Simulated assay, not measured.
Amino acid sequence: MTTNQSSSRFTPLTPIATTHPILFIDRTAPLPELHACASERLHATLDYLTLMACMTLRDSSANDINTLTNIARIMVQDVADVFGVIEQRGLEEE
């Protein structure tokens, strides 16, 4: 596979902790698989945030809250990136 083929096939996830993309989405994956990936992450994030909303954070530190928030941010960013690929694929097929 050439570099040009690779760059058109794979879309990088938004880098959060790095200056260069490390994780990529296969743009040629079947749409149901891309949707399942995004759906799994979205539902896991919703379940996680529901759990956090029901907990008492009296014993937590500011660092704990920052960690919890960062986990949710990473998961939602992944979902947004996968949905971006799904949307682009939909526009290309029209």
Results as ranks from 00 to 15, higher is better:
R58L: 09
P12D: 06
T11I: 06
E94P: 11
E93M: 09
Q77A: 11
V76W: 12
H35G: 13
T50P: 08
A38W: 02
G90S: 07
P12V: 02
D78I: 08
T45R: 02
R9N: 00
E33V: 01
N70I: 02
D26N: 07
S7E: 10
A44P: 00
L51T: 08
A29T: 07
L49F: 00
T19P: 13
V76R: 10
L42H: 07
F83T: 14
L51W: 12
L51A: 12
T28N: 07
T19Q: 08
F10W: 08
L13E: 07
A80R: 10
I71F: 10
D26F: 04
S61K: 08
L31I: 14
A44I: 00
L13V: 07
L13P: 01
L23C: 13
P12W: 05
A80M: 08
I71Y: 08
S7R: 15
E92H: 04
R41Y: 12
P30R: 00
T50I: 10
R73E: 11
P30V: 05
G84P: 06
F10I: 09
A72Q: 00
E93P: 01
D47T: 09
P32I: 04
S7G: 03
L46W: 03
P32M: 03
C37P: 04
T28H: 14
R27C: 12
G84V: 02
D78S: 13
S61C: 11
R73V: 10
L46V: 14
L42C: 09
R9Y: 01
D81A: 09
G90L: 03
R9D: 00
A72I: 01
Q5W: 03
L13Q: 02
P12A: 06
M75T: 08
H20S: 09
P15Q: 05
A29P: 04
I65T: 15
A80G: 13
L34R: 01
T45H: 04
R89Q: 12
H43L: 10
E93Y: 00
S7Q: 11
A36H: 04
Q88P: 00
